[in-house]
Design a protein around this nucleic acid. Structure first.
Lengths: 370, 370
DNA sequence: GCATAGCATTTGAACGTTCAAATACAAGCT
DNA sequence: AGCTTGTATTTGAACGTTCAAATGCTATGC
C-alpha cells in the first residue's frame, strides 16, 4: 500500500472514457441529465470503483464559494450556554448544507487580534459572530474589517447602532425585564442582583440583561434597594470569580437582619446561580424557603442542581435561527450586500414577542411570597 | 464601494512592479532573504496598501497541505467534559500553528455515516477522533475508511487492538481503579455504582472506567455487593436519563436498612454525580455525612455544587497532548505512515503513571469511614 | 576576453476543479 | 442539398497560489 495518490477527476474520466468535464458535471454538479444514461452509468461506476471523492479546496477555488461559514464564538466553551450556542449554529447551518468552521477566541487576545487575517483568506463564504457587546473592542474592530473586505458578516449580541450592516439583537434587555417582572409577580419586594459592573463609559446605555433587570426594578421603585444588594463579579473567566461573588453575597445576606434582606436574587447567568446555590447550601440557607434564586440562560444544567433552577430562557435558539436566515439571504446574492432594501433599515431587531419572547422556565428555586 | 474584487498576488505584483513569484516568496513563504531589501520593501508596502491576504484554498491546493486538522468529537458539546476536550484540542493544535476543524457527530447518525466522504475531500491534513469505543461501530468504520485513504488519523479512546495505526488509549481502566481504590482507602466497604451497562457481546473485555471500577471492587471482594447497587443509565443523551438513574438509586437507598446500604457511590461521570447530588438533596440525605459521592471527569462544574464534588481526573489533557504529538509525527513525514518504527508497535498506550496517572481531585463530597 | 560563479529575479507548469463556449453528430424542415 | 434545431460531449481557460527550473546580470578569476 505505497501511499496511493489521490484519485482525481482525471482518473475517473480516463477509466470511464469520457472527458473530465463530463465527470464533473455528473458527479459534482447536478447536470447528469445533460448526458446519456449510458454515459452516466459508466461514470458512476468508474467513480465508485476508484473511490473518488471531490477535493473541496479545488472546488471552492474555482467556484468561488466553499459551503462553509465561520462562526466566531466570543465566549469560552466552558460555559455550557455557549457550548449550546455552538451546537445550535452547527445544526442550523447543517440544515442548509453549510459547514460550520468554529473559531474560538475567548481568553486568547493574540488570536482575536488576527481574526480578520485569519478569516478573510480562509475560504469561508460568510461569518457569524457573537455574542458581541460594545466592550468587545478588538473583536468588533476585527469583524468590521472583515465586513470591509467583501465577506458577508452577521453578528448577534447587543451593539451600538451602525457598526455592522447585519446585527441580530439579543433580547437581553427584555429578558432582564421578564426576569424581574417574574419575581415581582411572585410577590418579591426586595431583590438582590448578582451581575457584573458595566464599563463606566457605557453606563446608562443598554446592552445586557442586567440593564433590563435594573429598568424593571426601577419601574417598581425597587432599584435603590436592589443596588444595595448588587454584587459584581470580579473574574468571569474562572470558577473562583463566580464562587467569590456568591460567597460575598451570602456572607452579607446571612449577617443581615431577617427583615432587611432580599427575598430573591436574580443572577446574570446560570453559572452565577449555581455558585450561589452552592454557597447557600453550605450555609444551610434554604432555597427557595429562605431565599428564591432565579437564573438566566436556562441551561440544561439547571435540572442537575437542587433545587432545580428556575431560569429565564433568552431564546437563543430563535436568535440563532434569525442569524442564519440573514446570512443565507446575504449568501444568495453576493452582489447586493450593502443595501438589501431601503425599507429594512439595519440593524434590525427581532421583536421580543411571539415565539421570540423570553420566558421563565419554572423549576423549583423560586417560590411566591405573599 | 461596488463589491471590490479580491486582492490577489497579481495585484500586489503589478503595484510593486515585480513578478508574482517574488511576492509569493516574500509574503507567503519565508524566502524574503532571496531578494534585495529594496524589493522586499516595495513588495511589503504594496501588500500593505492593497490589504492583501493570502487565499488559503489556493495555497492548500498547490501546497498539498492546509495547516488544518479535523477533530471528530464523538460526543455532544452539551457535556462540559467534551466541550473541554474540544477546547484542549484547539489550543494544543494552535500551539503548532494548526487549525482545528471541529466535526460534531453526536446524535446525528446520518452525519456519522458520511464522515469519510466529508473528511477525505475536505482539505484537512489529518484527523483526530475521539473518544472512541468499540461500540461506536459506524464511526470506527468511517474512520478506518479515512485512514484507508492517505489521510493520517489518530484516534483516542479505548478500542480493540488493530483497528487503527495510531491509537492513544485513555487510561479509563486505571482511572476506574484509582476511583475505587480511593474510596477503599477512605474505609468504605460497600460501594454503589452509577454507570451504564456495556453491550453484552463486549462483557468481560475492558473498555471503560467502569471496568476498572469493577475490577478494583472485585480485587477487594466487594464486587458482588456493589453489583446489587449498580444502577444503569437508560438514556445518556438527555438530562432525564441521568435524573431517572439518580432517583432510582436514591429511592432504593433511602428505603433500605441503614446497615445494608453503601456508604459511597462512584459515578461514571460528573453529570451522573450531579444528578445524584440533586436527588439526594431533595430527599434530605446528607452528603458526605450519610453517603459519599465520587465523580469522574473532574469538570469545573464540580466546584459549583454543594458539596463540591470530589472527582477523578482522567488526565484528558495529557491524552490530548499525546494525540497531537502523534499526529505531528505523522504530518512531518507524509511518506512513512505505515510503520514508524519496528520497535514501537501500534497501538501504543501511554502508561498511566507519572504525569499521566489519573488522580483524585479532592473536594468535599467524599469523606472517610472508620 | 572568456568561462565560472553567485545573486536577484522571472518563467511557466502544476494543483483539481468549474464553466462558458465550441464541436460533432443526427434529425427535421423546406 | 442546405439550413436550422437539438442533444451529447469536449475544449481550454480560469481560480490563486507554489515551486523547480531558467534567465539575466554583475563580479571574480585566470
Amino acid at each position: 500500500m505505497h501511499s496511493p495518490r489521490r484519485v482525481t477527476l482525471r482518473d475517473v474520466a480516463k477509466r470511464a472514457e469520457v472527458s473530465v468535464a463530463a465527470v464533473s458535471d455528473i458527479v459534482n454538479r447536478n447536470l447528469a441529465s445533460k448526458y446519456a444514461t449510458d454515459t452516466q452509468n459508466r461514470v458512476r461506476a468508474a467513480m465508485h470503483d476508484l473511490g473518488y471523492v471531490a477535493e473541496r479546496t479545488a472546488q471552492s477555488l474555482r467556484r468561488g464559494r466553499s459551503g462553509t461559514v465561520g462562526f466566531v464564538l466570543t465566549r469560552g466553551l466552558s460555559n455550557p450556554f455557549f457550548a449550546r450556542v455552538a451546537d445550535l449554529v452547527d445544526q442550523t447551518l447543517a440544515a442548509w448544507d453549510l459547514e460550520m468552521q468554529l473559531i474560538l477566541v475567548s481568553g486568547r487576545a493574540e488570536r482575536a487580534g488576527e481574526l480578520a487575517r485569519r478569516l478573510i483568506g480562509s475560504g469561508v463564504d460568510g461569518v457569524i459572530a457573537g455574542p458581541l457587546y460594545p466592550w468587545d473592542r478588538t473583536l468588533v474592530d476585527q469583524l468590521a474589517a472583515i465586513e470591509g473586505s467583501r465577506l458577508p458578516v452577521v453578528v448577534f449580541g447587543n451593539l451600538e447602532q451602525g457598526k455592522f450592516a447585519e446585527v441580530v439583537m439579543l433580547s437581553d434587555r427584555v429578558a432582564g425585564e421578564v426576569a424581574v417582572d417574574y419575581l415581582l409577580g411572585m410577590g418579591h419586594r426586595s431583590i438582590g442582583l448578582l451581575g457584573s459592573a458595566p464599563p463606566t463609559e457605557l453606563l446608562g446605555k443598554t446592552f445586557s440583561n442586567q440593564d433590563g433587570m435594573e429598568r424593571a426594578l426601577d419601574a417598581a421603585g425597587l432599584l435603590e434597594d436592589a443596588m444595595r444588594w448588587f454584587v459584581p463579579i470580579e473574574d468571569e473567566s474562572s470558577p473562583a470569580g463566580y464562587l467569590g461573588m456568591a460567597s460575598r453575597f451570602v456572607e452579607r445576606w446571612a449577617t443581615t437582619a431577617a427583615d432587611a434582606r432580599p427575598t430573591a436574587v436574580v443572577c446574570k447567568n446560570d453559572q452565577a446561580a449555581f455558585a450561589l446555590l452552592a454557597a447557600l447550601a453550605e450555609r444551610g440557607i434554604d432555597v427557595p424557603g429562605d431565599l428564591s434564586v432565579l437564573g438566566y440562560d436556562n441551561t440544561s444544567e439547571g435540572e442537575f442542581v437542587y433545587p432545580p433552577l428556575t431560569s429565564v430562557d433568552p431564546r437563543i435558539d430563535v436568535c440563532v435561527g434569525e442569524v442564519v436566515d440573514r446570512l443565507l439571504r446575504l449568501l444568495d446574492r453576493p452582489g447586493e450586500i450593502e443595501t438589501p432594501q431601503a425599507s429594512e433599515a439595519t440593524p434590525r431587531t427581532i421583536p421580543a414577542s411571539g415565539s421570540n419572547r423570553p420566558f421563565v422556565a419554572e423549576r423549583r428555586s423560586v417560590v411566591g411570597r405573599t
